[in-house]
Design a protein around this nucleic acid. Structure first.
Length: 560
RNA sequence: UGGGGCGUGGGCAAGCGGUAAGCCACCGGUCUUUGACACCGGUUAUCGCAGGUUCGAAUCCUGCCGCCCCAGCCA
């Protein structure tokens, strides 16, 4: 049994197999990405599942690149995938490539040919499709199906030597052209492909197909449970069949188990669409903070812990589902609330002059770094006569439920003083310029001197000490809950949120913020969690990304 | 009668014959030097539908209905 409370059907299967001693005590999994794109949150679910099983059963988990199609795969993707898996917090027991097994796969294919179970087919791609039949009608056998073993062997060797052009011939297994499962209708095992492979270079000009490579690769590595997504369910009979043909080689073949892939609301997770977003510059690269890629979430400021927590909470089942993005945000906030230190930053500055505060004077207030974690300590924040507060924290004609600053109202400045708004200063056009306030010296530190209460506590930054910063506010990339589902011919591209990125310049932040390291996360009090941009933040040009907002009761009341 | 899957509250998801967990969301309230956090309480379930078996069914059987996947020399 696994050493935790995980309860899903895969754990159940493994428990049964363990009990039946199908592979003895051993549990071995693998995460098998094709290096043709960056990993996304859906892959994170699979990674957490596979590596989690290895952890829970004290087994092993390999990272294996399914690199059987050099036409689409690149080293850049290999590198990014390794980086992302590591960042998520997992270490593979072995790093392998399907291309490591090309020689073995080739030998296995020859064995099948010798046994009359595979043949070289000269049909064109179009012809193969025609011969395959349709979903409801059986296919018919290829005219090349009856070639002799000798001829097949000769042709296959010559395919491998590059004697035939791309697409001219394939090696096929003899399945059943009448099978209701199209995968069994003489599946292609090898195709001729002249392309330089990122690892094997020009050694090969024939490459194995997924179905021929995957099961054998699993078996070679001694994988016990080969976990994949639902769309491969139809491939399982073929997976099992190929391994059965290699019986003596693999006496205890792996068991393929399928689960439903993740769908996340307000985004798309199809590789094709993500590639399109990047290649056609709808976003700024694979790690654009709006992207649902692992590197995107990383740059956005998400923690690996929150993503792992999310993966654990969504469960594993076989039902198609659409998980609410709010759950991911919840996991993030829960994690960051405990860990992120608090800071003050004003995104939309409104100047406040404390008219009864001595000119030229500065004092420092001790501010708690994290009320959830005493060990985070305190810091000193400068205060002076002129400050900035958030524009949204003032209303000239406030409704009843607004209890921040307004004419004649008193509020607390966090960790500083109570102030009262005495005068609203406007320019010739009637635009708000600044506020004149008075402070109560008795309220130093923010404590109510005579027991009187204020309804609001505002964040603030001393104007003389403020550091200018660039702050990027991110929102969901798509306006619809499930943009990937096309109806009425409307593309997901037409559902992109025009306001998914708002870049603010000239934000006023407390001095300590320029000292943040890239990727360091903090909470801007009352606003949300922010991260120093991994690539662009520096002390000279502080640049922050909003990871997510704080929950905002006022936004609900005010209908924003 | 092509094959393979899936259907439990708004979103996930336990449950596997003994009378519907939990999480998210939502709605109230308490607390509060973050309208945050925390805490308390609440709402939504004829378990796709219809029959059947059984003392008893979300769980077993039968028949329907709905949704998803498969006709790449992609994975």
């Amino acid at each position: 049994m696994a050493e935790n409370e995980s309860s899903n059907f895969i754990y159940k299967f493994i428990d049964e197999d363990l009990e039946a001693k199908r592979w003895g005590e051993r549990v071995a999994t693998r995460f098998p990405p094709e290096p043709n794109g960056y990993l996304h949150i859906g892959h994170a679910k699979s990674i957490c599942l596979n590596f989690g099983i290895a952890r829970d059963y004290k087994g092993s988990c390999n990272l294996r690149f399914d690199d059987t199609n050099p036409a689409k795969e690149e080293q850049e993707y290999v590198d990014s995938i390794m980086e992302d898996v590591l960042w998520l917090g997992f270490k593979w027991d072995n790093l392998y490539f399907a291309s490591d097994y090309f020689d073995k796969l080739h030998d296995f294919a020859i064995k099948l040919i010798r046994e009359g179970k595979a043949y070289v087919c000269d049909l064109t791609a179009d012809e193969i499709r025609e011969y395959r039949g349709t979903l409801t009608t059986p296919g018919k056998e290829s005219p090349y199906r009856g070639r002799s073993v000798e001829e097949n062997l000769d042709l296959f060797y010559r395919m491998g030597k590059g004697e035939f052009p791309d697409g001219s011939r394939v090696l096929r297994a003899k399945g059943d052209m009448a099978s209701g499962n199209l995968n069994m209708r003489d599946p292609v095992m090898y195709r001729v492909l002249t392309a330089t492979h990122h690892r094997t270079g020009d050694k090969w000009c024939i490459y194995p197909m997924y179905d021929w490579a995957h099961g054998q690769s699993d078996a070679i590595e001694g994988i016990t449970h080969s976990i994949c997504t639902l769309e491969f369910e139809d491939h399982r009979p073929l997976y099992d069949w190929f391994l059965a043909q290699l019986g003596e080689e693999f006496p205890t073949p792996p068991r393929q188990i399928e689960f439903a892939r993740l769908n996340l609301s307000h985004t798309v997770l199809s590789k094709r669409k993500l590639i399109e977003l990047v290649k056609d510059s709808y976003v700024d690269g694979w790690d654009d903070p709006r992207m649902p890629t692992i590197s995107g979430f990383r740059r956005r400021g998400f923690t690996p812990e929150s993503i792992r927590d999310f993966a654990g909470r969504i469960g594993v089942a076989k039902k198609d589902s659409l998980v609410d993005y709010a759950l991911l945000e919840h996991c993030l906030r829960e994690d960051l609330n405990k860990r992120a230190e608090r800071r003050m930053a004003v995104l939309h500055p409104l100047k406040v002059v404390i008219t009864n505060y001595p000119e030229g004077e500065t004092e420092h207030f001790e501010c708690v770094n994290n009320p959830e974690d005493e060990s985070a300590g305190t810091r000193m924040v400068p205060f002076s006569r002129e400050l900035y507060i958030e524009r949204d924290d003032f209303m000239e004609d406030p409704p009843k439920k607004f209890f921040r600053l307004g004419p004649g109202r008193e509020v607390r400045l966090r960790s500083a003083y109570f102030i009262t708004c005495e005068k609203v200063v406007k320019d010739a056009d009637g635009e708000l310029v600044e506020l004149h306030c008075t402070y109560d010296p008795e309220s130093r530190g923010g404590a109510s001197p005579d027991g009187r209460k204020v309804k609001a506590t505002l964040h603030w930054v001393s104007a003389a000490h403020a550091v200018d910063a660039t702050v990027r506010l991110y929102d969901r990339l798509f306006t619809e809950e499930n943009p990937g589902v096309e109806k009425d011919g409307i593309s997901y591209l037409d559902k992109m949120n025009p306001d998914s990125l708002t870049e603010l310049e000239g934000c006023k932040v407390e001095p300590s913020l320029s000292k943040l390291s890239p990727e360091e996360r903090v909470q801007f009090e009352r606003l949300g969690y922010f991260v120093a941009d991994r690539r662009e933040h520096s002390a000279e040009k502080p640049t922050f990304n909003r990871v997510t907002t704080l929950r905002d009761a006022w936004a609900k009341i005010s209908g924003k």
